[in-house]
């Protein structure tokens, strides 16, 4: 009886994974398809990847994505880490409420986040462009960094910092020499995650990007609206590979052994990757 149950369950698992990943596999496969009309397989080619190099609109989009991703990641990493430290270590009025609110930007539907940011920029008369995109991305990335760093902080032995104080290091030195090295894998994991989120984002970006300056997903989307070219499959495959690598790296980093080392029980640090955004 038990054996049959588990067979049945295994079948369901395979079916679900097929359902989730088949479309992606089809997309990847057709990025290597010779036919311009991506319905039938006519032979293997790398032409579409070669053509990418000549598509100035795609290259401009890529450049914009890297700039926005880089800038928003660095800013979010700094402020997200500070936020995590404050929420984990300081006792101040309203801390618990703020702690809960940390998850709000992550759970807010993107369309709402996008519209609210757009109306903010319009109200403040900030011209739409790369700057507004970057600001918007910082807004949703801070939460991701803060949550990952916070998880790392919780696994960290407080007595490490106290030992440092007892050895004659003041608070600032202790922060630099003990706290930051312990948090570093968490900060890096949060940053990688943030970069991925920024690189992937379409909804918010399209709302706050204005005309002229667009990130890669927005460019790709406008291409698809005209017609699904095989180059779209090629760039999508590249984006898929790049973001998968980043997520994999972030996951590895955040699962690294907690800094206390001697703690019993492999306390895996949670990270928000599975909490995929409402797209």
């Amino acid at each position: 009886m038990k054996r049959r149950n588990s067979l049945w369950l295994t079948a369901v698992v395979w079916a679900v994974y097929l359902f989730l990943h088949l479309p992606i596999l089809v997309l990847v496969a057709f990025s290597f398809n010779q036919s311009k009309y991506s319905v039938t397989w006519t032979g293997f080619t790398l032409d579409w990847y070669r053509q990418l190099a000549e598509r100035t609109d795609i290259l401009r989009g890529l450049r914009a994505s890297l700039i926005v991703g880089g800038a928003s990641t660095v800013i979010a990493a700094v402020f997200g880490t500070m936020l995590a430290l404050a929420l984990a270590r300081r006792r101040f009025p309203g801390r618990r409420a703020l702690d809960g609110l940390l998850y709000l930007p992550i759970m807010t539907p993107e369309i709402i986040a996008g519209i609210s940011l757009l109306s903010l920029f319009v109200t403040l008369k900030i011209p739409l462009g790369l700057t507004t995109i970057a600001i918007a991305h910082v807004a949703f990335n801070i939460g991701f960094v803060a949550i990952v760093v916070r998880a790392r902080l919780e696994g960290m032995d407080r007595s490490l910092e106290e030992a440092s104080l007892m050895l004659g290091a003041d608070e600032l030195t202790t922060f630099r020499r003990v706290t930051v090295p312990q948090l570093w894998p968490g900060i890096l994991a949060g940053a990688l995650l943030a970069f991925t989120m920024s690189f992937d984002d379409y909804v918010i970006t399209s709302l706050v990007s204005g005309t002229g300056s667009s990130t890669l997903p927005v460019v790709v989307y406008s291409m698809v609206r005209r017609n699904v070219e095989p180059t779209v499959n090629a760039i999508s495959t590249l984006i898929l590979v790049a973001t998968s690598l980043l997520i994999w790296a972030a996951d590895r980093l955040s699962r690294e052994r907690p800094p206390a080392g001697e703690r019993s029980g492999d306390r895996r640090l949670s990270h928000p990757a599975p909490m995929a955004r409402v797209k």
Binding site: D157, S159, L160, A163, V178, P181, Q182, G261, E262
Partner: peptide, 9 residues
């Protein structure tokens, strides 16, 4: 310290 608190890095 009870946990020794050696700096793991």
């Amino acid at each position: 310290f009870q946990s020794y608190a050696l700096f793991p890095h």
